[in-house]
Design a protein around this nucleic acid. Sequence first.
RNA 1: GGUCCUGUGGCCGAGUGGCUAGGCAGAGCUCUGCAAAAGCUCCCACAGCGGUUCGAAUCCGCUCGGGACCUCCA
Length: 498
Amino acid sequence: MEELKMYNSLSRQKEIFKPITPGYVGMYVCGPTVYSNVHLGNCRTFISFDIIYRYLKYLGYKVRYVRNITDAGHLEGDRDEGDDKFSKKARLEQLEPMEIVQKYTLGFHKVMELFNTLPPTIEPTATGHISEQIEMIKHILANGYAYEVNGTVYFDVEKYNQEKPYGILTNRKLEDLLEGTRELGGQDEKRGRLDFALWIKAKPEHLMQWPSPWGMGFPGWHIECSAMSCKYLGKQFDIHGGGMDLAATHHTNEIAQSEACYHEKPVNYWIHTNMLTVNGARMSKTAGNGFLPHQLFTGGHPLLDKAYSPMTVRFFMLQTHYRSTLDFSNEALQAAEKGLKRLWDAYEILENLPAGNEIKEAMDPELDKRCIDLLDEFDASMNDDFNTARVLAAMFELVPVINSLKSGQIALNSLSTGTLEQLRKKFSIYLTDVFGLKNDKEADSGRLEGVLQLLIQIRKEARAKKDFATSDKIRNELQQQGIVLKDEKDGSVSWSAV
RNA sequence: GGUCCUGUGGCCGAGUGGCUAGGCAGAGCUCUGCAAAAGCUCCCACAGCGGUUCGAAUCCGCUCGGGACCUCCA
C-alpha cells in the first residue's frame, strides 16, 4: 500500500509520515477553552482530527491521542491588568470558576458525543498540571530564555531568536514580526515587544491562583500545552494539531518554549485545520457570528431554514478538505443531507445483499475492475493528506452500481464474490469506522420497526384489493410523520426517515 | 504595512500539466396503480490578460476580486 502523506505546516509541503516509534503515534491537539459553549468552528477542528485519529487507527497504528481542556485563566488582552477569563465570568454569574469549567466541559463532551467523535485517550486539564508548568518555567529560566519582573515571568523572544528562528512555523522573520506589533502603552515590564508571559502574577481578587517560586499567580496560556504534551507524549512526538488561527502565536510560542527548555524540536508534523466561515467571514467568538451546535440541531438560528442532524453536519464537513475553508450555508447543508441519505441507502443495500453462490470469476470483468479501482481510491485518497472529499466522490460513484445490484439491472454474478465482499466491507468500514458516521435510522428503530411493519402489511393488503385510497392514505400520513415508504420492484416495501 | 491563502459550472466543493471529480438543484427518458426512490442521458466550468509548453484549471508574471494571520479565539 502507498505511504501516508500529510501536509506539514513546518515545511509547507506534504511529507511521508514516519512515526518516531514504528507502529505508534503520539498526537496532541489543542482543545477548547471551557469558559463558554463551543461553536461549530471549534467542532470542525475536533471532527477533522477525529477523522485523522480514526484513520491512523484504521492503518493499524496504536495512537495516544491527547487533547487538553484549557480551564486555567488567561489574560484577556495583552495587558497585565486584564482579568482572568474564568473569574470574570464567574463574578458575572455568581459561580465558582470551577463551576463554569465543569458546566462547559460537560457541554463540550456532550456535543462531541453527538458528533460521534471518539474521546481522546488522555484529556488533561491545565489546572491539573500546574506543577508541571512551573517546573518547565523554572527550566526555561535556568536556561536563560526567560526573566522575571515583579512576579511575572516573560519569555525572551529576541534572545531565543538569536539561536533558533522564532517565526519558523509561519515563515516569518523576527524583524517583520516586530514591525507588525503595535506599540504597547504602559507595558514597560516586558523587554521585548514579542515577549509573552509564562507565568502571570495574580492580583488578590483573582479567584484562580497558585503559589509559585515567583509568588501567587497563574500560568500563561501557551505553557500548558508544552508541559502536558511533554508529560504524556515525550519531549519529541509525532503530530501536533490545532486550528490555523493558533499557528502564528500559540504554536509558535509552544515551539519556542519547548526548544528553550529541552533543546529539542518538539514536534515532527504540525497539522492545521482551516476555518469554518459564515458568508465568507471566519466564525469566531469575538465576531459574534458563531453557530452553536444546539442551534443547528434544532434549526433555531436566523440563518437556518430547518434543523440538521449532527451526522448531516459531520458529513457536510467531510465533503471539504480539512485545509480549505468551509462556508456554512443552508443550501450546502441541504445538499449534504440528501447526499448522506443516498450513501446510507446504498449501505443498507449492501448489508442486506443475498450471499449468493461462490463466484470466482466476475461475469463483467470490466465492471469488477472498476469497482476494485474505486475501492482502492479510498485508501489512496486518505493517504494523500486525508482527502475525505475524494473518498466520498469514489463512494458516490459506486452507489449506482450498488443500486443496480439491488434492482437487478446489474446481476450479482457480474462481480466476483471477493469483489462483492470487499465492496460491502470497505463501504461499511469507511462510513462508520473511518468517517465516524452513525445511521440515524438505526438509532430509533426497534419498536418503531414493528409498528411500521404492521402498517406496511395493512397497506399491502389494501393494494392487493386495489384499494388505493387506503394505501395512499397510509403512505401520505406516514410521510407527514417524516417516514417515506418505497414500493420496491420485487414487491417488498422499505421505509426511511426523513 | 508585513506574512500567507484563495478565486472552479445555478449552489457546495475535489483536482495529479494531456484522460469523468463528486454532491445538490434543473431537463428528458425508463420503471411504477399513482408516488417516492432508482437507472440511463443531458447541463463539458475553471476571475481577466499575457507567458512557458506539442499541450495548462493545474507552472510563471501582471491586473482585479475575496479571505486569514500579525491581538483572546479551533
